[in-house]
Design a protein around this nucleic acid. Structure first.
Length: 186
DNA sequence: CGAGACCATCGCG
DNA sequence: CGCGATGGTCTCG
């Protein structure tokens, strides 16, 4: 029964050629890190729960992020606001978001990590890596991570994935990265 | 106030 | 397909 868990390079190539939505770059080492389920993290595909999100400057000034026990910075709110613009059933990438606020993808990831407003109104599960890979969730990346829940949430919204954790279609049936951010109201 | 650490990435070799 | 480079932010002393 025991089979190799790593994915043969050929399969990866096939995946890239036929389905890779964004770049046709070769899959990276992270692909070999599947599966993504973690026994210690309960399954959760809820995409409806609505957290209270401080909108006004005053409210934001006093809000304490329960995840960090700290206030959120201006930049963090900016990124969260941006993320909140992603329509249901669509996804965007860390890079797109970074471009939108003149930041870097890693900084975006950093904010997603501490996002206390998941899954609403800040649907951080709709942010994937630039090549369509599901990426990280819940503070972890790839395998050790808990992509299962991120994936479950997206599937519930109508997105499709292949066996390796790459998105192949959003709700519309195609895959196109959402990048139409309105940065004017940040 | 400054330096160092961190990262749910990227893209090149 | 692996690995190092890189940018920006956060944290702590």
């Amino acid at each position: 029964m025991a089979k190799a868990k790593t994915i043969p390079a050929k399969s990866l190539q096939a995946i890239q050629e036929s389905k890779a939505p964004v770049n046709k770059k070769a899959a990276r080492s992270r692909v070999g890190k599947l599966p993504d389920a973690r026994a210690d993290v309960p399954f959760d595909d809820d995409v409806a729960e609505l957290k209270i999100y401080p909108r006004t400057v005053e409210d934001r000034a006093v809000y304490i992020n329960p995840k960090t026990n700290r206030k959120l910075t201006e930049f963090q709110f900016k990124v969260l606001d941006l993320c909140a613009q992603i329509p249901k059933g669509k996804v965007t990438t860390y890079k797109k978001m970074a471009d939108a606020v003149n930041s870097s993808p890693r900084a975006i990831g950093g904010v997603m990590r501490i996002n206390p407003f998941c899954p609403q109104p800040v649907p951080c599960h709709r942010v994937v890596a630039s090549d369509g890979f599901l990426g990280g969730f819940n503070g972890q990346w790839g395998a050790g991570g808990n992509m299962r829940n991120k994936r479950a949430k997206l599937e519930k919204e109508g997105c499709k994935f292949n066996a390796d954790g790459f998105i192949v279609a959003d709700k519309s049936g195609d895959f196109n990265v959402f990048g139409d951010f309105d940065t004017s109201k940040l």
